[in-house]
Design a protein around this nucleic acid. Structure first.
Length: 216
DNA sequence: ACATTAAGTGATT
DNA sequence: AATCACTTAATGT
């Protein structure tokens, strides 16, 4: 899982159908593979980004943060994803406007910005990948905004739990009401009441620091 | 046994 | 829906 040969293997599996062999080889040569445990902050707001991440394993939570440290979840990055906001930061040398935290154990391949500019010019498959990725990130954000504006908190909480279950590939989640409140920019008390409701409607079962989804 | 942290509840805005 | 103040329950030392 951390030898050079398996970087190639993972690359082939995840991106083989996307990129030509020559580009895959360059990615393998230039990319730095790194592993992170769950719940590790990778990018703080205000950080300057020098490398672009390609997610090979696990998932990453992308969120905004305001002055009082309260957060709002924007979207998740999963296998084969890259961060659109980072793409922007890379090309314009701007500072990060988001925070990135690993949600599960994660393997990431870091690619220097200089390389990605070169590839944009020389590989149409790379260009297509970057544009596609930018597009799907934008769509996910639109969904998140839609959810935020048009759904009540109860639906937002349920959607949040469902998404989390999908990402961790488990119906049993380990998290506190406070965690949910932070991600959804709400308060613990309110979440507790909503969770009670969901439990009474047999949509979830819950205990201290754990939630089980009944349907998926 | 005691302290700490998570979750539940009624009242108020 | 948020905040406060307080209770109850679960866990760690």
């Amino acid at each position: 899982m951390n030898t050079d040969t398996s970087i190639e293997a993972i690359l082939g599996d995840s991106f083989g159908y996307l990129f030509e062999k020559k580009l895959l080889k360059e990615i393998g040569e230039v990319g730095q593979m790194k592993q992170f445990p769950a719940q590790q902050t990778l990018i703080h707001i205000g950080d300057t980004i020098s490398h672009m991440p390609l997610v090979l394993e696990g998932s990453i939570k992308i969120m905004t943060e305001d002055k009082d440290q309260s957060e709002l979840l924007l979207y998740y990055l999963e296998l084969g994803d890259t961060c659109a906001v980072t793409l922007n930061c890379c090309t314009t040398k701007a500072k990060s406007s988001i925070r990135a935290v690993t949600e599960t154990e994660t393997s990431i391949l870091f690619i220097p910005v200089s390389m990605m500019e070169k590839w944009m010019i020389h590989y149409s498959s790379w260009r297509a990948f970057v544009l596609e990725s930018y597009n799907s990130r934008l769509n996910e954000m639109l969904l998140a905004i839609d959810n935020l504006v048009f759904n009540n908190l109860e639906e937002r909480v349920y959607n949040y739990l469902r998404d989390k279950a999908i990402i961790t590939k488990s119906k049993e989640l380990v998290l506190s009401h406070q965690n949910i409140a932070d991600d959804l920019h709400s308060s613990r008390v309110v979440i507790s009441r909503i969770m009670k409701k969901l439990e009474n409607n047999h949509q979830i079962k819950q205990g201290r620091n754990r939630v089980e989804l009944m349907k998926i």
